[in-house]
Design a protein around this nucleic acid. Structure first.
Length: 426
RNA sequence: GGAGACGUGGCCGAGUGGUCGAAGGCGGUUGACUCGAAAUCAACUGAGCGGCUUGCCGUUCCUAGAGUUCGAAUCUCUACGUCUCCGCCA
């Protein structure tokens, strides 16, 4: 959510951003509602001041027989009725305003390029070189099925399409990757490991921006106000909501492993085979809470923390800067990490690192008190995958495949696999 | 799931219908004293919103929502949470 004052004071600038995001909205609606709101507040507060004064007088006068207390009461009661009326009207206006503000996307960073779609995302840097195979590299589903480490049919049998069963060394490597990533972020990058709830209430999802707009992407429990989390960003970012942190306690770095649940509405037909796009997948997430002055430096560091995972696993990747037409609703600036997949002969998303500035902080009411003791300010929040575990498994299987159908285990992962160096056909 | 108790500011804790944004303490900031923020003393010390003469005025907030009343931290109802006992369970 953005500050209504910012929007009204910078209508042209923000309207331009909306256009670049391809979000159609007439900002004039907001100024009308805001003017109405101020008018009602003026009237109702005026009446409340009079009522408070009158009630106080009754309290002091009730033992004085020369005063007509019933008449005073009647007069103030009329005021009370009028106040109730105005307050109801005010609540309606504020709700309408709030609904608009909650469905408007974030600002864009000056360093976010303008563009239409993913084809306009500039490559910021490239690391490693795609390996040359002297045989035709296979897609991960063929390799994994032959090795008996993934069973796609059983996933469908137990749940529905876009669910997969990992077993044996496939399940083992998934767990190894989670441990490897968490160890890296906690020991080398200074993050606090958290195990959050995998279900959260509606207000929590409003805090990070998934609600109210994107309910169709989420799984909702039938009998409770609880939703399955689509990413650990949601519980981690909300950990300190509705509070005022001390500047000396910032920045805060959190990391968590969680499963993520997404309905994938609107992606029918895309990545239908394999583990690429699942309704349930594992992810290690990183979240930062920091001051406005440091958030863009923190974004660079966060992104490099995610890149380290790929570097250590020796997986070629590049970093792209998401353009205005592709960037997410709540983000001002996003770097996507895309890993090389030999079977597709292209780079595919494996991590997304975003600076949301104070967009989520406003929705969560998360502030900090500057160390000079001045008024509380909203924090900036950042999040990034560190990284998507299932897609890392795909990248390892494809990049480390051998001609005989076996997979070499990346050196850094060997200790997490009980010393195992290869997965062979049985 | 059943029964009972409770939910007050950063923390602890008074307050059972008016003068209460709320005693007192702790914590914090500043000043005095001092070689020295060790002790002592003094003052200050919540947030949101609205207005304008930008420092003040007004208003709202005592878990949340609704109600009674001229007036609610205080009374009523509901929800949520915490604690204790019982039941159940990993």
């Amino acid at each position: 959510m953005l500050d209504i004052k910012y929007i009204l004071a910078n209508q042209e600038e923000y309207a331009g951003m909306l256009k670049n995001r391809k979000h159609d909205f007439d900002l004039g609606i907001l100024s009308g509602l805001d003017a109405k709101r101020r008018k009602i507040i003026g009237e109702t507060e005026d009446l409340k001041a009079k009522r408070n004064e009158g009630s106080k007088r009754i309290g002091m006068a009730k033992n004085d027989p020369s005063l007509d207390v019933p008449a005073m009461k009647a007069e103030i009661k009329a005021m009370g009725d009028k106040i109730k009326e105005l307050d109801t009207e005010l609540a309606q206006v504020e709700e309408e305003l709030h609904t608009h503000l909650m469905t408007l996307p974030n600002k864009l960073s000056a360093t976010t390029p303008i563009g239409n779609d993913e084809n306009d995302n500039p490559v910021v840097r490239t690391w490693g070189e795609p390996k040359k195979f002297d045989f035709e590299p296979k897609p991960h589903w063929d390799i994994a099925e032959a090795l008996g480490i993934m069973d796609f049919e059983k996933g469908v049998m137990l749940a529905q399409s876009r669910f997969t069963v990992l077993q044996g060394l496939g399940a083992r490597m998934e767990r190894a990757l989670v441990n490897f990533m968490l160890d890296l972020h906690t020991k080398e990058h200074g993050y606090l490991e958290v195990e959050p709830p995998f279900m959260v209430r509606s207000a929590i999802l409003e805090g990070t921006g998934q609600l109210p707009k994107f309910a169709e992407d989420l799984y909702k429990l039938q009998n409770d106000d609880l939703w399955l989390i689509p990413t650990a960003e949601v519980p981690l970012t909300n950990l300190n909501r509705e509070s005022i942190l001390e500047e000396k306690d910032l920045p805060k770095y959190y990391t968590a492993y969680t499963p993520c649940f997404r309905r994938e509405a609107g992606s029918a037909g895309r990545d239908v085979r394999g583990l690429m796009r699942q309704h349930q997948f594992d992810k290690v997430e990183m979240v930062k809470i920091c001051t406005p002055e440091t958030s863009y430096d923190e974004l660079e560091k966060l992104t490099s923390n995610a890149e380290d995972v790929l570097k250590i696993l020796n997986l070629p990747y590049h970093v792209v800067n998401l353009c205005s037409g592709d960037i997410g609703f709540g983000s001002c600036k996003t770097y996507d990490l895309e890993v090389w997949l030999p079977s597709q002969n292209k780079y595919r998303e494996i991590s997304s690192c975003s600076n949301c500035e104070d967009f989520q902080a406003r929705r969560m009411n998360l502030r900090y008190r500057p160390s000079d003791g001045s008024r509380p300010r909203f924090v900036h929040t950042l999040n990034g995958s560190g990284i998507a575990v299932g897609r890392t498994l795909i990248a390892i299987i494809e990049n480390y495949q051998n001609e005989d159908g076996s997979i070499t285990i990346p050196e850094a992962l060997v200790p997490y696999m009980n010393g195992l160096t290869r997965i062979d056909l049985r």
